[in-house]
Simulated scan of single mutants.
Amino acid sequence: MTTIVLIPGAMHGAWVFEPLLAELSERGLTAVAVDLPSSSADTASIGSLTDDVDAIRAAVADIDGPVVLAAHSYGGVPARAAAGTIESVRGLVMIAAFALPVGASLLQAQGGEFPPSYERSADGRGVKIGDIAETIYSGVPQDVVERALPRVQWQSVESFTQPAPAEPGPDVTVTTVIATEDKALPADQQRQWAEASDAQVSVASGHSPHVSHPGVVADAIADTVRRVDAAS
């Protein structure tokens, strides 16, 4: 049986996938969501991109059988690295995610410096998006946004500046979910990265389609699982 591992974007934890987990469960799919060390309320102990890859590796190590990783936004960076280095990872779903080439950093992809709207922690080790409701949660119902905002944490500066260490090989089935109304990651950039994917799904969503359109994302993941199972 193929297991799905959900990987959150910057400043978020496993909690953000609650709507998607429910949809996957309805489809009879087995899924777990992980927290990444690079997102934390405590910047003194905040992790790096390397720590995130290690966290994904640890989660996958506890799973028997093939794995499909499904990653949102920044989570696509450690997910691609994990997919390129863990043999049991057979599929990858990129949900409005950064498909950086090896050697590039997330900060480079954003122009080399943090946008003016970003807030910096007192020790300089963490950042938060100041206009998160508008950029990350565009198109999400207001009551859902209000419940989510207090749970947003610091994201480590190091995770933005470390270069992407690896990428999936040709034996990993890749699906890209393109958010066509994304205000954080332009849809044109998503489409460009998606050209190397095995399948593409477009959804009229802002940057968080797993929250605003969890059924569409669940269908894309389910299709990827079917293709992985067929190839096994």
Rank of each mutant, 00 (worst) to 15 (best):
A22V: 09
A22T: 10
E23L: 05
E23N: 02
E23T: 04
L24G: 07
S25M: 05
E26G: 13
R27F: 01
R27K: 14
G28P: 02
L29D: 05
L29H: 04
T30D: 07
T30A: 15
A31D: 00
A31G: 11
A31L: 04
V32H: 10
V32A: 15
V32W: 00
V32Q: 14
A33T: 07
A33K: 08
V34E: 03
V34M: 08
D35Q: 13
L36G: 08
L36A: 10
L36F: 05
L36W: 06
P37A: 13
P37K: 13
S38D: 09
S38Y: 10
S38V: 14
S40T: 08
S40Q: 11
A41V: 15
A41L: 15
A41G: 15
D42F: 14
A44S: 15
S45Y: 00
S45R: 15
S45H: 13
S45M: 07
S45W: 00
I46R: 14
I46P: 06
I46A: 07
G47D: 03
S48C: 13
S48I: 12
L49M: 14
L49H: 05
L49N: 07
T50Y: 00
D51R: 07
D51G: 13
D52Y: 09
D52K: 11
D52Q: 11
V53K: 06
V53E: 03
V53Y: 01
V53P: 04
D54H: 10
D54C: 03
A55F: 01
A55Y: 01
A55W: 02
A55T: 05
A55R: 07
A55M: 03
I56Q: 04
I56V: 14
I56D: 05
I56F: 04
A58E: 07
A58P: 01
A58T: 13
A59V: 04
A59I: 04
A59F: 00
V60G: 08
V60H: 02
A61R: 06
A61V: 01
A61D: 12
D62R: 15
D62E: 15
I63G: 11
I63H: 02
I63E: 01
I63A: 10
D64N: 09
D64Q: 13
G65R: 02
G65A: 03
P66F: 00
P66L: 02
P66D: 11
P66H: 01
P66Q: 07
V67E: 01
V67M: 01
V67K: 04
V67R: 04
V67C: 08
V68I: 05
L69E: 02
L69V: 12
L69C: 12
L69W: 04
A70R: 02
H72W: 14
H72L: 07
S73E: 06
S73F: 02
Y74T: 11
Y74D: 03
